[in-house]
């Protein structure tokens, strides 16, 4: 995992919204993510554009995909964010 890819992936409001939705309801198909972005967030994007955003999140390790049956489901993976917190720990400052 390259940390710069994580920051680049997070540097986009649509991708952050996708992570919000996956972290509140994990395991969604491309179709479900598209529907929610359009209907709940009024984001007018093509399916191809959303698919590309998911690709960026996946190559940064923030999203993992899993096949269940014949469909592909997307999951939020917070591990790269934990790396950031490990590098610049928050706890010590607060205490």
């Amino acid at each position: 995992m390259v940390m710069v890819d994580v920051f680049r992936a997070l540097d986009d409001e649509t991708r952050r919204t996708i992570l919000d939705e996956l972290s509140s309801h994990d395991g969604q198909t491309l179709f479900e993510i598209c529907s929610i972005l359009a209907m709940r967030h009024n984001l007018s994007l093509t399916r191809q554009a959303i698919s590309q955003h998911l690709g960026v999140l996946e190559s940064a390790g923030l999203v993992a995909t899993e096949r269940r049956g014949r469909s592909k489901f997307h999951h939020f993976n917070p591990a790269p964010l934990a790396e950031i917190a490990d590098r610049w720990p928050i706890q010590k400052r607060i205490q």
Binding site: T29, I36, G69, F73
Partner: peptide, 18 residues
């Protein structure tokens, strides 16, 4: 089998099954 359980999309509820 549902690939998408009932989901609130604002104006409607939707779900997807195989």
């Amino acid at each position: 089998v549902f690939t998408q359980p009932p989901t609130d999309i604002g104006t409607a509820l939707m779900a997807v099954f195989d």
